[in-house]
């Protein structure tokens, strides 16, 4: 676990879990495809810290970039743009690039 599993440029998909407990993965990005911009370091898991647990070992955090068209689909009402968000590794899985797009772009 010492090296980040996902390198910059790797296509990823955000998990679709719906925990009723605290987490830092915004709902609007669940299940969306994006690309890793960079790693941001390793941090104790906020999902454990929130309940007074140490959250160790720390988890790699990634800045992930998304196309607005992928995120919003038919709700998109502006010219193309990108969104980045910081997502912990256990919320990401490698994905095939471009999959899941095509519904709005």
């Amino acid at each position: 676990m010492s090296r980040p599993a996902l390198a910059a440029g790797v296509a990823v998909k955000v998990g679709t879990a719906e925990p009723s407990t605290h987490c830092r993965t915004p709902h609007y990005l669940r299940g969306k495809h994006g690309v890793v911009v960079r790693t941001l370091g390793r941090y104790p898991n906020p999902e454990a810290l929130a309940y007074h647990k140490p959250g160790l070992p720390p988890i790699t955090l990634y800045q992930v970039e998304f196309d607005a068209a992928e995120v919003w689909g038919e709700r998109l009402r502006e010219a193309p743009y990108r969104i980045t968000a910081d997502i912990f590794e256990h919320w990401l899985e490698p994905a095939v690039p471009d999959s899941g797009q095509g519904n709005a772009a």
Binding site: R24, T25, P26, L40, G41, Y43, P46, L61, Q63, E65, E78, A79, P80, Y81, R82, I83, T84, A85, D86, I87, F88
Partner: peptide, 27 residues
């Protein structure tokens, strides 16, 4: 984002790409 920027009086050239940065974690 473009609509929000406009509310702040900010109009960007159409070709300028916008990147909305959501600070969701420790950074």
């Amino acid at each position: 984002p473009r609509s929000v920027l406009k509310e702040f009086g900010t109009e960007l050239p159409a070709q300028r790409e916008i990147r909305v940065v959501d600070s969701t974690a420790d950074m």
